[in-house]
Design a protein around this nucleic acid. Sequence first.
DNA 1: CTGAAAGCGCTAACAT
DNA 2: ATGTTAGCGCTTTCAG
Lengths: 353, 353
Amino acid sequence: MGRRRQSVTIKHVAADAGVSLQTVSRVINNEPNVRPAMKERVQASIDKLGYVPSIAAQRMSGSRSYLILAINDRDMTIADWRAREGRDWVDQMLLGGMLTCAKHGYRMLIELVDTHSDHVERELGAAIAALQPDGVILTPPHSENPQITGLLAKRQIPFARIGTTEKGPGIALTMGDKFNAQLATDHLIELGHERIGFIAGPEEFSLSDRRMNGWIEAMDNAGFAHDGLAQRGDFGFETGMEAARKLLDLPDRPTAIIASSDQMALATLELARKRGLDVPRDLSLVSFDNSPIARFTQPPLTAVDQPISDTISRAVELLIRSRDEAPPADVISVHGELVVRGSTARARARGAD
Amino acid sequence: MGRRRQSVTIKHVAADAGVSLQTVSRVINNEPNVRPAMKERVQASIDKLGYVPSIAAQRMSGSRSYLILAINDRDMTIADWRAREGRDWVDQMLLGGMLTCAKHGYRMLIELVDTHSDHVERELGAAIAALQPDGVILTPPHSENPQITGLLAKRQIPFARIGTTEKGPGIALTMGDKFNAQLATDHLIELGHERIGFIAGPEEFSLSDRRMNGWIEAMDNAGFAHDGLAQRGDFGFETGMEAARKLLDLPDRPTAIIASSDQMALATLELARKRGLDVPRDLSLVSFDNSPIARFTQPPLTAVDQPISDTISRAVELLIRSRDEAPPADVISVHGELVVRGSTARARARGAD
DNA sequence: CTGAAAGCGCTAACAT
DNA sequence: ATGTTAGCGCTTTCAG
């Protein structure tokens, strides 16, 4: 097949412009200490020849790799892709990440890593050694895996932790979980609901408890009891169904339920239908994620929309910038919003059922 | 920030194992002419030190970059991501592409390129110069853009063209468009339908006509007329609605319609509802793509499922292999299958409406 | 402000 | 079967 060489290199440009390699390099990297006239001449040659630097060579010489690595949980991601249930978390990451990367001449690359395996460090280490990314984006549950954050910190690779509020090395970004849960709860309270159930996510994700705390706080503020009104699922349909069952089996069952994922909301909807409960007449329902299916259910779900794209975009921006300036030490919070659809309605007068 | 160097290099391994760099290189690349004992000793050092080759360095020395670049249409892809309507074409590409890449030590990278712009060549050229991928995957409509295929051919970069049957440089792979359309048509014919309408995709995509031909052929085989029963849309909702309108306005309107995309099928469903036509009682409906929403409509859509993941996986496999062996000259066809759901039913006796 | 020299980590080509 | 040499394209010293 013959080895493929770069067609136009810095050498060609230098020769064409009649300057040294170094001067061309300075122009490419927008360094100071180049006279405008010189810069212009070199730029003209670059444009004329259609020169584009090789990132491999740039990386080799100790400069940037112009690569940002996004690490997703392998099993969960593959399961979502296979299930084809419309979860577009990865797409939203790409949307925010790729576009922002492109704006700065970077590329984003996705890597699937198995959090639970005992060789996480090897897996991640290999990816880093191979690609030498300039920054890494960690999504839950990786964001709180000390093996991963530790490795990155030790190797001094700038990284962002999505969906966590824990202090520590790296840039922490949340999508306002507590705030969002309050938003959802307040919406229901405004509709006159007092007994509002909550289906939390698994403990493995710290955002699960942040959401639950938002609900608790909103309930407390309104002076409503919440004891026994919380159940836990794993974000999936099955456990969501189980949690919903426990809530609806309550003697004084809730008139509204907030589920921490669309799948769990779907399960709740399904169970309500089976029990002859009309949503939203007999039961109001709010879900988290607002993935595409939320719009296609009957009724369409009122849902908390997570600003995934914006958050990843923000992370990329900060990672790229962290080359020159110190990254923010505080947790960055980009909060979501409530999309009101047909699954929530005014609470009926007490005792009406 | 300080330049980051590779922590463990081939030098360290060579020193540890007490051999030359070249020998280590040979072991890494699984080359012959290394005595088993030697190989084992080197491998032991590699494992001990946790060495992983830098792909930048590998690329620099004229070897592979271990990168496969998938080129998607920028506008269409971003529009899909923003719309959040569950189209998971990109996810399915990643599923097939990333996993197969990983199996061979490669990575897949997505690049968004604007087909319609007059600087396609510059855009693509830049991506290639920067990344130096070992292979490129072209998705429609790029697969049939001569500017793109020409550039790739000239630069001698192995590439795959998805969704095309045109001969030419590069590996062509289709997802069996004609076959799939026949499948859909035959399904309806078996249900007793004779007047089967067809909503084709835009001419810009050659697969549009291949699908239409499949329908025509199936209709011909059954001895049914198809004149005036074809309309064209652009895969989107609006034009789908318009096309459906024309078909349903026909004096002797079809009892079944095949739409070349889920969005156009959705539009048809919507129009049918507006006109008081029950699907599938009064109108059977088959769609193409089988994206997640197809399962969540009322009724769920009978749809042609495109083997995107498998096709991309196949493409990756062939691209990687094309380093050593000549790629297949023939068009490779991985065909889809029909997923029967609730939008198709037996045709009612003629004249019943 | 510009240039020359050295080297990043790896492999192809050429010894031995 | 193994080692040596040169060089990929670029940036970082260090000199002018």
